[in-house]
Design a protein around this nucleic acid. Structure first.
Lengths: 193, 193
DNA sequence: CCTCAAACATGACCTAGATCATAAATTGGT
DNA sequence: ACCAATTTATGATCTAGGTCATGTTTGAGG
């Protein structure tokens, strides 16, 4: 899916400064958002205020379709992690896109499958495995996206918010994993090797 | 999607007796399975042998696509909950179906979105909420599928395997929820009201 | 209307991870 | 290079829910 095509079609490009909220739980979905630049995080917040990161979306990706496709209010907040430019594609336009562009619809199916796969994996982890196992699993998952020698640009707090653990537990956990040689860490940063 | 069409196309109908395994984690996906009759459960098993129910699929539904679509080995076991008849649709046939039948591909997109929605909800629960909240959430979710006055045909063990809790905790939890009037239970069975 | 396996129930621990409190190390902006 | 704000670190409790052990109830099949 080429974002330029959407812009050419005359769709509005909206700017969201870092920290601004794109949508909130309970809102009725009306758009699918394509990211021209920047990064957003999708988080649910529990009754007691604890955040859980459902996903992080970057330039070139889109988000917000599942709720729109099944016509249910959003479950999560979506918040700009950095200054971001988004293209809001209306429900009608999006449905048309899916109907008339088999390549896009195939791509969408793959994207949804991939997210489903990730969520299944995380569910199994949260439901059954203990802290360290959980930690090692997301760390390895995240390491998959980067090159050898690079380090994970992710804080302990973010790891906590992705695993349902608390910062202190993540800190103690990563330390332990490093001691056991299961991960390598330089100045606190986790590096791929 | 009409199952009869698949049968007419000459696809083989396979029988799986209750308890038999359709596929296992690690296997390379080659088919999508359409359920002609019966019921299957998809479960992941932790290192310590704890089961987690990823999903339950019934007559008319299909399963196994995500792994196949993104070409990754299965994460879960799929096991017949009852004697079942399944139609195994090969990767090639399935891709063709998606490509050439826009209605089916739209339907698939909706199905994937719905599952994603459920998993997002459960992830938030497992990551952040405590036992009773978790319990109430799946119970209400399951109650959505049945009529007033009917009762949930689900054991405490199954509820445990869906929430990542232990039977004892589920038993104590449902009792508490019933005492507080949040659910109604008759002879142990949870009934919709 | 018995029987026996499966499902529910309940009490007594025990531990992983949450909480709380406090401080050291990094990082980024000027 | 300096300072404030994040982020990481560590120790001392506390507790929800797991674990173990031992009943009691339910309901399906003969």
């Amino acid at each position: 899916m080429n974002i330029q095509i959407l812009i050419d079609k005359g769709l509005k490009l909206k700017s969201y400064p870092k920290g601004s909220v794109i949508y909130e739980p309970g809102e009725q979905p009306r758009y699918v958002y394509f990211i021209k630049s920047g990064e957003v995080r999708m988080v649910t917040v529990s009754d007691e205020g604890k955040e859980f990161i459902q996903g992080i979306f970057k330039t070139g990706q889109y988000f917000g379709e599942p709720a729109l496709l099944i016509d249910r209010p959003y479950l999560a907040f979506t918040i700009a992690n950095k200054d971001s430019q988004l293209i809001a594609v209306s429900k009608e336009d999006f449905f048309e896109l899916v109907k008339n562009d088999p390549d896009f619809s195939m791509e969408l199916i793959r994207t949804l499958s991939k997210r489903l796969f990730y969520k299944s994996m995380m569910l199994e982890e949260l439901a059954s495995e203990k802290a360290d196992h959980r930690l090692l699993t997301i760390i390895n998952y995240l390491l998959g996206d980067i090159n050898v020698g690079e380090n994970l640009k992710v804080t302990r707090q973010e790891l906590a918010d992705m695993t349902g653990l608390r910062v202190e537990t993540v800190i103690r956990g990563t330390k332990l994993l490093a001691e056991n040689g299961l991960i390598k860490t330089v100045k606190g940063k986790i590096v791929k090797l």
